[in-house]
């Protein structure tokens, strides 16, 4: 019991960082994903191929490899000293970006072609049709999978403890190592993840119902 209580301050510190990395990372990932998802559908072959290559590389490699590559590999190549937090945010952003791109593509493609045709028939350009007609409808549909991606990315941040980011898992691990008690700290780490993920799921479901999707 004493270890269960004792680990809490450390975990609160860790969860703040986990949250920060996830929120900033997923937000940037969402911007990347929106452009890449739309770019994938571009008529321009060059643009769509660049987007496909990006998506396939990210989806085809483990995120653990990606973080090590960014933190150690890229820093080494350019002889720069990326700090751990920046490297983590970049890794989550790039990783989530690829998955969000596929979500965005699916959302756009799920909108009936008749909507685009109706827009173009009025004389709206391709971009205007996308902006005023297709995107607002697609966005509603992609909110549930986006929320899902947020939860996945949140859990993915636990892998960043390999570069010693002081995230939730790392803080628990450090506590366990210093007290030689292993059951309670890891149990509490699990509980802390659930404290974020379960309410996230509930909020997501409420939003879904509000949007009537």
């Amino acid at each position: 019991m004493e270890y269960i209580i004792g680990v809490i301050p450390d975990l609160i510190q860790g969860i703040k960082l986990t949250f920060l990395i996830t929120i900033v990372g997923v937000l940037i990932g969402f911007v990347i994903g929106t452009f890449v998802g739309i770019g994938r559908l571009a008529n321009n072959k060059f643009i769509s191929w660049i987007c496909i290559i990006y998506i396939e590389i990210i989806r085809g490699t483990p995120i653990l490899v990606q973080i090590l590559f960014i933190y150690f590999g890229v820093s080494d190549l350019f002889s720069i000293n990326l700090d751990k937090l920046t490297a983590s945010i970049i890794a989550i952003a790039i990783n989530a970006g690829a998955y969000v791109a596929e979500i965005v593509r699916g959302g756009i493609q799920s909108i009936d072609k008749g909507q685009t045709e109706a827009g173009r028939t009025l004389g709206l350009s391709h971009v205007q049709t996308m902006r005023y007609i297709v995107w607002p409808q697609a966005f509603k549909r992609i909110i549930p999978p986006l929320g899902n991606q947020f939860i996945i990315s949140l859990k993915d941040t636990s892998l960043f403890s390999v570069i010693a980011v002081n995230d939730l898992l790392y803080m628990g691990k450090a506590y366990a190592a210093s007290t030689f008690s292993y059951f309670e700290p890891y149990l509490m780490v699990g509980v802390f993840y659930l404290i974020i993920t379960i309410p996230s799921s509930i909020i997501l479901r409420i939003v879904e119902r509000r949007l009537d999707v």
């Binding site: 008749g114 045709e117 109706a118 173009r120 004389g123 350009s125 509603k140």
Partner: peptide, 20 residues
């Protein structure tokens, strides 16, 4: 083409109104 299309109205079988 956008300019020309704006002068040609079209009505579809499935209406294609914008639901949002």
């Amino acid at each position: 083409i956008n300019q020309l299309r704006s002068q040609v109205g079209m009505v579809f079988q499935h209406f294609n109104l914008f639901p949002h």
